[in-house]
Every structure is written in C-alpha cells, then in structure tokens.
C-alpha cells in the first residue's frame, strides 16, 4: 500500500500532519505519540523576535469547538532555528514551520533565517491569524498583499512554500488564485473563523482579546467546502484542516481534494488522534481496495 504524498515538494510518508499552534514543537506530545510515525510535524507560528502573546483568558469552549486568542506567543525565529530545529531534525520527520510577521519584510526575514536549517522541509505562511493587530489576516484578506508576501517568501528561501488561507473572506478561490500566481507550492486551509463569547454573569466578553478564532468539529463543514472550492479553482496541492477528529473526517477532506490533512484541536481532546487517523486511513484503503492514497485525492469530484 502506498500512502506517500507530495505536498508541493514536501514528501510525506503518510498524509497526516499537525495543525500549527496545536502541537507545540512536537516534544510536548512525545509521551503519547510516536512522533516518527507522523507524515510531517507543523510547528507554532514563528516571528522575527520573541512574542509574549495576548493576556488571559485566551480560550473559551464553544459547542463542539473552542475559541483561541493566543496572539502568536513564540520564542522567535533565532531560537527556533538554533535550539529547537536541531532536536526536531533528529526525528527524521519533515518539519513545516509556520511563519508570521507584521510586515512583508518580517515574513521574508523569518524565511531567510529558516532556509537551509536542517530538518525544515517547508514553510507555511500564516496570513490568516485573526488574533494579532498587525499582519496576519490583513495580508490574508487582500489578494494583492497575499501575493506580495508569497513572492517575498519564495525569493527569500529555496523551500517549498504553503500559503495558509483564511475562511474570513468573501472569495477564497480568488485568494488561492492570487497566491498560486505568485509562486506558492501548496495551499493550506482553513485557519480559524473569527468568533466571540460573552460571559453573561460578568456581562463582558469572555476573552481578554474580545474575539478569538473558532476551531474544532464546529467548523468542519465550512473547511470541507473551502477545500472543495479551492480544489476546483487551482491546481496546487492542498493541506486540509478544520475540525478533523478521526479518519473518516480526514477522508472527507481528501475526497474533497486535500493531498494531506492537519489535526489541530483534536490533539487536545485525544492526544493520539494523529496516529489513529494514520491507521484508520490505511484500514479504509484496505477495506475499499485502494492501494495508493493519491487515488482518493479529490475523488468526490469525479
């Protein structure tokens, strides 16, 4: 059975990775997950300098989901490149580093510092973070800015570049076309949907940041729709995510057109979700007579 996929130049032995920001730098989950079984590990959003992030409360549970407003707390690209990557590289699993910044130059700077760092297999450009004031979503809601960031990152590093799209826009396909044109090697979707919870007892917004990003099973149908539409609009491979809890959920994304899938919020609920999905997809292929995972990609369109 062949489960190997090629995500815009990132070769994964199976189509399962982790969603940025939900799996730390991987080691946090080592007691529960054999990290070497993962197709790739996608790590937390990384910026030029260390960031302290937002105040607490940073999360709120919602029906079948959660809001988060972490605010890109991270140790900065230098520590990621010099201290964290050497340890992660020892696992021999491709690492996708999610990158963010306030300006186009910030993205390019982070990309340049990660270029050639052992273990880094690709970059995921986060132009869709709803929880920071500058950068993030501001690039993700305007096709011209998104294309500009993509071009700058491609020019700064010789690595495969995945552009992560926001669902908080009117036309995701137009965004996808713009970044494809600018040289993206793959697309990932979806980032979280902007949401809000009011604490009725305190009569105030629950999150310190007021709004947060909605993730978890609650957003899955929106995410599957996004993958379906973008798959039809552009030729690039897609990393699908949004509420994936088990193998059947993951297969929905693959059938809709995702070459690979990322597991996010589900890690918090069941730390072994990634492994169970890898095994579940293999079982599905065996039971349904597929010997190559790529036969399933986009099959629901046929």
């Amino acid at each position: 059975m062949n489960t190997t996929v090629n995500l815009g130049g990132i070769i994964m032995k199976n189509p399962v990775t982790t969603a940025s920001g939900t799996f730390g730098f991987g080691f946090e989950y080592q007691p529960y997950v054999n990290l070497q079984r993962l197709g790739a590990i996608t790590v937390k959003g990384t910026t030029p300098a260390p960031r302290a992030g937002n105040s607490t409360p940073r999360i709120a549970e919602t029906p079948a989901g959660m809001l988060n407003a972490i605010g890109l707390q991270n140790p900065g690209v230098d520590r990621v490149a010099q201290e964290i990557m050497p340890r992660l590289a020892e696992l021999g699993v491709p690492v996708i580093v999610n990158i963010a910044g306030d300006t186009v130059e910030d993205y390019a700077l982070v990309a340049r510092k990660l270029d050639g760092v052992v273990g880094v297999a690709g970059l995921e450009i986060n132009i869709s973070c709803p929880n920071v004031k500058k950068g993030g979503i501001q690039f993700g809601s305007d096709p011209r800015s998104a294309a500009e960031v993509t071009r700058a990152v491609k020019a700064a590093a010789g690595l495969p570049v995945i552009v992560k799209l926001s669902p908080n826009v009117a036309d995701m396909a137009a965004m996808a076309e713009a970044v494809a044109e600018a040289g993206a090697d793959a697309l990932s979707m979806i980032n979280t949907l902007v949401g809000m919870v009011i604490d009725v007892d305190r009569r105030k917004p629950l999150l310190a940041n007021l709004t947060g990003g909605l993730s978890g099973p609650a957003i899955r149908p929106v995410a599957v729709r996004a993958v379906w539409q973008v798959y039809k609009a552009v030729k690039l491979p897609i990393l699908g995510m949004g509420g994936i809890m088990n193998a059947r959920d993951a297969l929905e994304f693959i059938l809709a057109g995702a070459t690979a899938v990322a597991v996010g919020t589900a890690n918090f609920v069941n730390p072994r979700t990634t492994i169970e999905i890898i095994e579940g997809i293999e079982n599905y292929m065996r039971q349904n007579g597929f010997d190559n995972i790529n036969q399933l990609v986009g099959l629901a369109h046929k």
């Binding site: 920001g21 939900t22 799996f23 730390g24 946090e28 989950y29 007691p31 529960y32 937390k44 992030g53 607490t56 409360p57 940073r58 999360i59 709120a60 959660m66 988060n68 972490i70 707390q73 919020t265 890690n267 918090f268 730390p271």
Partner: peptide, 16 residues
C-alpha cells in the same frame, strides 16, 4: 488556575 486546552504545554492557552 487558568483555562486549559491541551494540558501538556503545546497550545499556550494557560499562561501566567
């Protein structure tokens, strides 16, 4: 006490 998602240090929800 802080609100927690992962409980294992991965999500940065629970900071003090």
């Amino acid at each position: 006490e802080e609100r927690m998602a992962c409980g294992v240090g991965a999500c940065l929800s629970c900071v003090c």
